[in-house]
Each structure stands twice: as structure tokens, then as C-alpha cells.
Nucleic acid binder design. Structure first.
Length: 425
RNA sequence: GUGGCCGUAGUUCAAUGGUAGAGCGCCAGAUUGUGGUUCUGGUUGUUGCGGGUUCGAGUCCCGUCGGUCACCCCA
């Protein structure tokens, strides 16, 4: 708005109002709950990092040009984190002796990328990161994939809503070897494969020329679905009842430089959105970031809040589930109506006891008509109103939805409400 | 970084180049200890910002900022 022109949030950044934060809380709670159910432990890392940690050998790709990068007052070249993996790899490298393997960690953090915003992409966003260190087996791969799938299931999404497209960079390296293409060209080659899906065949054909590989060979290879290379992972997931959520797809390679083996991306079945989640194996990154002092295989995944939110809202079952979660997430559970101003001190004491019992209680700061106070209770979404008046120490407890009202001694109120499931479903 | 569309009250939107409006919301009332409905009254704008054309610009033109979508790219 006019007078606020200079105070607007920066492009691509969001002000999160309480209504929006409710949605965010739902996302975060679900992420955290499922990750912890898998035995993952939560951690965090600095928002600001030395830019060096994102240099080509570590992240590579476009991410370098999208850094929020500047020189700090100590003349250090620093960047706001665009992803978590390098920081995490460093943390793990520095403490790898301290933890029993496998290390299973997750974080929920904000990230920054300087790019023009569009659907599903902002300059600051939240991302869930889940990683497993110290185990390079298909069992570890499957565990991480299962977690990714179960998180989406926890939001009410099913196998008809999304698919996890599973690929493996090692399969491509083998392919290149068989086609007599030098391994040092692998990175550039994979980036061509990465873009195939969005490009005209003729363009891809042209881009493949320097590698001495023709398009039909690539297409044929993708059509093999890895020739059973994914069997151990798929069998594992089948035993968990999650096989239907995964589709082998060698067309996925991902853009980051550090991926080494399994890579994957999750898409909505209708293909309305960008990848909802993605990840892969990065078995050499810990070693690289610790100058060889530590060496642990790793696999991880990331899931951002922006695309996920769009996705959830587009799915009837998921949005219904979210709505019902939001409805039960009350900002105020009990509203205390002060019907007699001389009893205000008693009401304040009562409110304190309610709050001590973990009940979200609110009231009007100054004298107000009882009807108006009930209006406040209503608009705040309280399930109950407690009327404090001349009957003190007896109070009246009214269930707003049913309009039922009972009298109760004030010292019994907190226990009564705490155990009332209509207050806290 | 390139391009399309958009920018009017807190919000959603309206206004053949001629006095800026409506719904919702918000506030106050309908004989003062009971709410969602209803009724009555009230509230708000340098039309994103800056220039230009014109007797006159919310409307046309240019610039700029912001939003949105696509391209680039996708970690």
C-alpha cells in the first residue's frame, strides 16, 4: 500500500501472518512427527556460511549463481545458505566418531536463493532435510525413500497422487563407459539428460554430439528401467507396502554436482507442479569437506514448503485433512468472561491457573458488555466460555457450540477443562 | 537476466477520458449477566510511485517499484 511502499518485504520474501503460520505449523508438525517416528534426530546449522562451502566441487550447478552472497565486516566472503547438505556434511565430518552409525538426522530450516520468483519458487523458503550417514546399503536407501513417501502419506496423499521417480547415476556412468565416453565428461552429460524431458529431441540430439552418444541409445537405456538394478530397494519397499509409490526412471539425474549413486525426485501424478521432493546419494561429500579426515557414505532428501503447500491444496483428501487439522488448532480454547468488574482480580487468578494447566485462555482487557465478550470468545474460536461474576467462587462454564451451561466451583475448573476432549480433541 | 498479464478502502472487486463506488470486514447501537443470524448508523482512499498527453487521467503514453506466470535453471 502507498505509504508502506518502502517498507514492503523484499521480492520473493513472505510476511507470514498467523493464518499462514497455522498452515506452516501443520507442515512442520507433520514433517517433524514422521521424521522422528523413523528415529531421525533433529539438528540445525548456521543460516550464514562461508561461500567456499558451496564452491563448484561441493554444490556446483546453477546454485552458485543464485547465492545471496556478500562480504561481511570482517572481509569474509559469506552466503546465506541455499541448501543444507554442505553444512550438514561438515557437521557430520567433524563429529563422525562421536555417533554410532548409521547417523539419521533431520532439520527444518529456511534457505535462500536469489532468483526471480514464480510458481513454487521464492527467494526464502523452508525445507525439510533428512539424511542417513555411514551406511551405503540399499537398505539405507530404502529407509530414506520410505520416509519420503510416508511423509507425503501423512499429509493424506496416496499412490494416485504422487510418484517417486527413482534413478541411479552409477547406471549412467556404466552407460558412458560402454559407449566409450570419457568419465570426466559425465557431469556435463548428465546435465543434458536432466534437461531432456523439457527439450525438443533435436536439441538434445545436438547436445549429445560432443559425447559421441546418440539420442536413441540414451532413450533406449532409459527404457530399460535399470534392468533390475533397483531390485534390492524395490523389494525392501515392497515389504513395507510402499512399492506402488515408486517408479524406476533413469531420466532423473538431478543437477547438483555431489550426487554419486541413487537419485530421486517426487512428482505429483498430474504433473502440475515442480518436484515436491528430491534427493540422492552423496558418498564423497563428507570426505571432500573434511579434507579426507572423515569419510562416510550418505544419502539425503529435501522437501520444500512452497510446492508442497500448493500440492496439498490441490488434492481434495490432503486439503480436507489439512483443514480439519487447522480447525482443531485453536488459538484460544477458553475465554473468560468478566461479568462483574469487581471480580476481575479473581478472574485474573483463574486465568493464570488455566494457563498453568496448558489451556489456552484469553479475556478482555477492560470492562465490556457480556454479549461483546461472548462475541470475542466466538471470533477467537474458543470452545468454552467461563463466566466469572457475582456467584464467585462458583463460575459458569458454557460450551459454545451446544450452548449448554453448567455451574462449577472455580478451583475445579482447570481439571474439568483439561480433561474435556471438546477443548482439546 | 528476458518476456506476457496485473496494481483502486483492511480485503474482494466496480467505475464509455468528466464529482471514486459496492459487498465483506471493522466500530457503535437495538432498556445495561450470554455469542454466531437479523436490523440501524458509522468508518476508510494522495487510485503503488514519478513523469507526460489533455480543458480534464483510476482510465491513454513513458519510466519505476511490486505482484503473478512463463523462459533461463532447477540445487
Amino acid at each position: 500500500m502507498p505509504r508502506l511502499t518502502k517498507m514492503q518485504s523484499l521480492p520473493g520474501f513472505r510476511d507470514i501472518y498467523p493464518e499462514d503460520f497455522q498452515i506452516r505449523r501443520y507442515l512442520l508438525d507433520t514433517w517433524r512427527r514422521v521424521a522422528r517416528s523413523y528415529g531421525f534426530r533433529e539438528y540445525d546449522a548456521p543460516t550464514l556460511e562461508s561461500s567456499a562451502i558451496y564452491e563448484k566441487k561441493n554444490s556446483g550447478g546453477e546454485i552458485l549463481s543464485q547465492l545471496y552472497r556478500f562480504t561481511d565486516r570482517g572481509d569474509r566472503d559469506v552466503s546465506l545458505r541455499p541448501e543444507m547438505t554442505p553444512s550438514l556434511a561438515r557437521m557430520v565430518a567433524a563429529s563422525s566418531n562421536r555417533y554410532r552409525k548409521p547417523i539419521k538426522w533431520f532439520s527444518i530450516a529456511n534457505f535462500f536463493r536469489y532468483e526471480r520468483q514464480q510458481k513454487g519458487r521464492l527467494r526464502e523458503f523452508l525445507q525439510l532435510n533428512c539424511d542417513i550417514f555411514g551406511d551405503s546399503s540399499p537398505a539405507a536407501d530404502a529407509e530414506l525413500l520410505a520416509l519420503t513417501i510416508d511423509i507425503l502419506r501423512a499429509f493424506g496423499l496416496g499412490k494416485d497422487d504422487f510418484v517417486l521417480r527413482l534413478s541411479d547415476r552409477n547406471a549412467w556412468l556404466l552407460f558412458l563407459e560402454q559407449n566409450n565416453c570419457p568419465p570426466e565428461l559425465a557431469g556435463d552429460f548428465l546435465s543434458v539428460v536432466d534437461k531432456m524431458e523439457r527439450e525438443k529431441p533435436e536439441e538434445t540430439e545436438e547436445k549429445l554430439r560432443p559425447f559421441g552418444v546418440d539420442l536413441s541409445a540414451v532413450q533406449k537405456f532409459i527404457a530399460t528401467d535399470g534392468d533390475g538394478a533397483f531390485a534390492p530397494i524395490l523389494d525392501d519397499l515392497a515389504a513395507r507396502g510402499l512399492r506402488d509409490f515408486v517408479g524406476p526412471d533413469l531420466g532423473i539425474v538431478r543437477g547438483l554436482a555431489y550426487y554419486t549413486g541413487v537419485v530421486f525426485e517426487v512428482f505429483d501424478r498430474k504433473r502440475q507442479f515442480r518436484a515436491v521432493a528430491g534427493g540422492g546419494r552423496y558418498d564423497h561429500l563428507v570426505k571432500s569437506l573434511s579434507d579426507g579426515n572423515s569419510d562416510l557414505p550418505a544419502i539425503g532428501m529435501g522437501m520444500g514448503d512452497v510446492v508442497l503447500t500448493h500440492f496439498l491444496q490441490s488434492s481434495p483428501t490432503a486439503s480436507e485433512k489439512m483443514q480439519s487439522a487447522l480447525a482443531s488448532d485453536r488459538d484460544c480454547e477458553v475465554f473468560v468472561v468478566v461479568a462483574d468488574e469487581t471480580k476481575r482480580p479473581d478472574a485474573l487468578g483463574l486465568i493464570t491457573r488455566l494457563r498453568e494447566n496448558g489451556i489456552r485462555a484469553d479475556f478482555s482487557f477492560g470492562p465490556a458488555k457480556v454479549g461483546k465478550q461472548f462475541g470475542s470468545a466466538e471470533s477467537l474460536g474458543a470452545t468454552h466460555a467461563v463466566v466469572v461474576g457475582s456467584e464467585w467462587p462458583e463460575v459458569r462454564v458454557k460450551t459454545l457450540a451446544s450452548r449448554e451451561e453448567i455451574a462449577v466451583q472455580q478451583d475445579a475448573l482447570a481439571d474439568l477443562l483439561k480433561n474435556d476432549h471438546s477443548v482439546r480433541p
